[in-house]
Structure formats: C-alpha cells, structure tokens
Amino acid sequence: MGIVDLEPDSFDISLACECGLKQEEQSQNDTALKLTARFSDRQFLRNACVSGSWTQEEASTDYFPFIPNQPFRVYVMCCY
C-alpha cells in the first residue's frame, strides 16, 4: 500500500469478521467496523453494516489526530 492521493478529502478503513469462513459462507454485505476520517470538517466517524443494514454513524470523539500537510501512518492490529 502506498500514497493514493497527496491531498485527500477523506479516507475509510473497513474491517470484516469472516476469518476462517469458506468463500460461499462469507457475506458481502457485512462490515464489522468502518472508520472514516473527513479532513474538511475534522471528523473521525465509526459505523458498521450488520445483516446488510448500516448502523448510525458515531462521531463522539473531540480529538482529530491528523495534522494538515503532515504524513501519518495507520496501524490496525486484530487479535482473535
């Protein structure tokens, strides 16, 4: 993975819980957690898609961790 856009408006990270399932058992509609960073309004949002329906977006954090014109790294660590 590398730099996609030098001046993005936002980015999304979507995680699914389908480890160990056979391909025919995997749902294309479920997302366990979706994280969205929107730079223009300094929001970091979360939601999920369960059984094909999206939950309400949550934005309860007051802190926006991204600084304009500064590179950043995102680490996702999953334990099961």
Rank of each mutant, 00 (worst) to 15 (best):
Gly2Ser: 13
Gly2Pro: 02
Ile3Gln: 05
Ile3Met: 07
Asp5Phe: 14
Asp5Thr: 15
Glu7Arg: 07
Pro8Ile: 02
Pro8Arg: 04
Asp9Gly: 10
Ser10Leu: 09
Ser10Asp: 11
Phe11Lys: 07
Asp12Lys: 14
Asp12Tyr: 13
Asp12Glu: 13
Ile13Tyr: 02
Ile13Lys: 06
Ile13Thr: 06
Ser14Ile: 07
Ser14Asp: 10
Leu15Trp: 03
Ala16His: 00
Ala16Glu: 00
Glu18Gly: 07
Cys19Ala: 10
Cys19Met: 08
Gly20Ala: 08
Leu21Val: 05
Lys22Trp: 09
Gln23Ile: 14
Gln23Ser: 14
Gln23Phe: 05
Glu24Ile: 02
Glu24Asp: 13
Glu25Pro: 01
Ser27Cys: 07
Ser27Val: 05
Gln28Met: 11
Gln28Tyr: 00
Gln28Pro: 00
Asn29Gln: 09
Thr31Pro: 04
Thr31Leu: 11
Thr31Asn: 05
Ala32Cys: 08
Lys34Pro: 01
Leu35Ala: 07
Thr36Gln: 07
Thr36Ala: 11
Ala37Val: 05
Arg38Trp: 11
Arg38Ile: 11
Arg38Gln: 12
Ser40Phe: 10
Ser40Val: 10
Asp41Pro: 00
Asp41Asn: 06
Arg42Cys: 12
Gln43Val: 08
Phe44Ile: 14
Phe44Thr: 06
Leu45Asp: 06
Arg46Val: 13
Arg46Ile: 12
Asn47Asp: 09
Asn47Glu: 01
Ala48Cys: 08
Cys49Pro: 01
Ser51Gln: 00
Gly52Met: 06
Ser53Thr: 10
Trp54Val: 05
Glu57Asp: 09
Ala59Cys: 15
Thr61Asn: 12
Asp62Lys: 13
Tyr63Phe: 15
Tyr63Thr: 15
Tyr63Arg: 09
Tyr63Pro: 00
Phe64Tyr: 02
Phe66Leu: 12
Phe66Glu: 07
Phe66Gln: 06
Ile67Lys: 13
Phe72Lys: 04
Arg73Tyr: 11
Arg73Met: 15
Tyr75His: 13
Val76Lys: 03
Val76Gly: 05
Val76Glu: 03
Met77Leu: 14
Met77Pro: 00
Tyr80Ser: 12
